[in-house]
Design a protein around this nucleic acid. Structure first.
Length: 594
RNA sequence: GCGCCCGUAGUUUAAUGGAUAAAAUACCAGGCUUCGAACCUGGGGAUAGGGGUUCGAUUCCCUUCGGGCGCACCA
């Protein structure tokens, strides 16, 4: 009897899942229990490969049959037979299954194609807007932004692999009191030089624009610590800005342009791209309109002092001020507008905000306020909350200068990787050396960050991040390069290798490990996408690399005799495909030589 | 004070309520005349404390202790 495919399987058409399905059907048949459907059989991977390829824990079955799980396992062991299964063994409450080598090989390895779509789900009509990085234009991008950016980027790629249309957006916070602070400091510092023609700029100082402006932000903090009048100066600057004072606007425009050109450079270096940039300065007024309208309709209260306040206490949240009593906007002002604007813009089914966990409460408030003003715009809003990046000595503090600047860090990593090349391959042309060094440095940084479960706070150890050994991005890249080298040395092409029929593999204990690992790829991609958690894929890829590494160390490939040689090459080709496509979903490039 | 999150080898990270808690790093001992040693093989080392629920708890509940974040007319 042909097993009935469920919806999820039809979508995925994943060979290993289909094998499980067939086994599930065999189990239900053997159990002879009407209430039992193949869907009620669950599987897991045995903790030790010698146990088997697949295991069925019998605890849930025990509940259905009202019997001891170990008894059930023993009964099923006797009654199940299926062409896929070579051996089935009860081990206490578990039923361990060994597949026939030929079946596993042809189904798993035979299905891995060099296509970029391998592991991808079919396209859906769903559109998802995602917002990430969202920097302020008063200081350069740091490690915290990098975690945000890498998460947002890889989640976007994963959602795309899950068949969704993804719109990547970035909100630039280019107005507000913090922006005025660097402006005030700049005016203060350049006061004496004002009559002269040449004020300092990024080009006269040779500094990257965002770093240039960031220095003035730091200067403001220093000045205001000594002299409290600076705080008022910043407030007055914001009022002038909101009033549209030409001189203030001109300086703001100039300084913002410097910062933005610096950001652009950094985004390019990090491999981050966006479909749409939003500038707070361009939308905050519309946020004001929405709030004023809502307050007229009594959806939101106005305080005696004139401030507009959302009363959230009845909803179990602290109240939130939406407009200051002097009428100026707050951060949330434009977020309220943007929530509905974005849905209209893209007819999005969902909007995801990738923002740090310190803003958990903020997003609860934002989503509740949007719901109070217009329920239909609150649909599909979700906060993807991630943990703080700490240093070994504690939290990064900009005031204490312990913030890890991302340009500096990447430069340092690239230099380290470059030095490796000087030792390994001094003949490498400089241009190629630098290109490879950048790719390896970026892989190290991205993997270090993405590998950690997003929700968790993490410790970034700068020293450790400079190591390219062990569980790192470069380790996976290295494994990939080694495998590619074997294929190249075989004097045949990937396509020729793929054309050879798969029959039997010759070193089953070794090869089985690689195959079982390969088999998990499509499910890992889909589960990572579903849970917005690229760390799962990252850890999987490391495990696969480890398994592949052990394999080619222990097993001769090119020296083997033909048919084993061809079969083993076939397995190597499959592994390179998965490593390459998997890393690409994390935004990590591969190198054929390193 | 109130709310949320977190305590796993020396360190950094894993573990849909299920089999012997998994890796990396550091440390110790091995492996390049071989498909590339950014690699591989072997070794010791951990669930903060106390209750509870469960056939079974790192995981769920309570509690003590320790840490982080939030409760701005900052972002």
């Amino acid at each position: 009897m042909q097993p009935r495919k469920n919806k999820r399987l039809a979508q995925l058409s994943e060979p290993f899942v289909e094998m499980q399905r067939e086994v599930a059907c065999a189990v239900t048949k053997a159990a002879r229990e009407a209430a039992l459907t193949p869907d009620s059989i669950s599987f897991e991977v045995p903790p030790h490969p010698d146990f088997g390829d697949l295991a069925i824990p019998c605890f849930t079955l025990a509940r259905i049959f009202k019997q001891n799980p170990a008894q059930i396992a023993t009964q099923l062991e006797k009654n199940i037979s299926h062409p896929l299964i070579e051996k089935i063994q009860a081990a206490g409450p578990y039923l361990n299954i060994h597949f026939r080598p030929r079946e596993l090989a042809s189904r798993v390895v035979g299905n891995i194609m060099p296509s970029k779509k391998f592991g991808h789900a079919p396209r859906t009509n769903e559109t998802i807007v995602i917002e990430y990085v969202s920097p302020n234009t008063n200081k350069p991008i740091h490690l915290g932004h990098a975690r945000n950016g890498f998460l947002g980027d890889s989640i976007s790629r994963l959602l795309n692999a899950a068949g969704k249309k993804v719109i990547k957006t970035c909100l630039i916070n280019d107005r507000g009191i913090h922006i005025c602070k660097s402006m005030v400091a700049y005016m203060e510092r350049t006061k004496s030089e004002r009559r002269k023609a040449a004020l300092p700029t990024p080009s006269t100082t040779g500094k990257k624009g965002d770093h240039f402006v960031g220095d003035y932000y730091v200067l403001f903090e220093q000045l205001s610590k000594k002299d409290s009048s600076y705080k008022d100066k910043a407030s007055r600057c914001l009022l002038r800005w909101e009033a549209g004072d030409p001189e203030t606007r001109a300086l703001w425009k100039k300084m913002n342009a410097w910062v933005l050109s610096g950001f652009k450079e950094t985004f390019t270096a990090l491999g981050l791209t966006f479909d749409r940039m939003y500038y707070e300065s361009a939308i905050y007024k519309k946020g004001k309109e929405v709030i004023e309208r809502a307050s007229k309709n009594r959806l939101i209260e106005t305080d005696v002092s004139g401030a507009v306040i959302a009363r959230l206490e009845p909803h179990g949240l602290p109240d939130k001020v939406l407009l200051r009593s002097d009428g100026t906007s707050l951060y949330i002002t434009q977020d309220i507008y943007l929530a509905e604007h974005r849905l209209n813009d893209f007819r999005a089914d969902a909007t995801l905000y990738v923002v740090g966990s310190e803003q958990d409460l903020y997003f609860k408030q934002l989503f509740k306020i949007v719901e109070l003003i217009e329920p239909k715009y609150a649909r599909g809003l979700a906060h993807i909350s991630y943990g703080i990046v700490n240093l070994p000595e504690g939290r990064m503090k900009s005031r204490e200068g312990t913030v890890v600047d991302i340009d500096d860090l990447l430069a340092e990593l690239t230099e380290m990787a470059g030095k490796e090349f000087d030792e390994r391959n001094a003949a490498l042309p400089k241009k190629e050396r630098d290109r490879r060094a950048r790719i390896i440095a970026l892989a190290a940084l991205k993997f270090y960050i993405i590998e950690v479960t997003p929700r968790s706070d993490m410790v970034f150890n700068p020293k450790e991040s400079l190591s390219f050994q062990g569980r790192t991005g470069p380790y996976i890249q290295y494994t990939y390069a080694r495998l590619i080298r074997i294929i190249k040395k075989s004097k045949t092409t990937e396509t020729a290798i793929r054309k050879k029929p798969l029959s039997v593999l010759y070193d089953w204990r070794q090869e089985r490990m690689v195959m079982l690992s390969l088999a998990k790829y499509p499910t890992t991609v889909q589960e990572s996408a579903k849970s917005y958690d690229p760390s799962r894929l990252a850890r999987y890829l490391y495990e696969l690399a480890q398994t592949a590494n052990e394999y080619y160390h222990a097993t001769p490939i090119l020296a083997a005799e033909d048919p084993a040689r061809a079969q083993r090459l076939r397995l190597i080709v499959a592994a390179t495909s998965v490593l390459r496509e998997g890393l690409a979903l994390l935004g990590i490039e591969t190198l054929e030589e390193m």
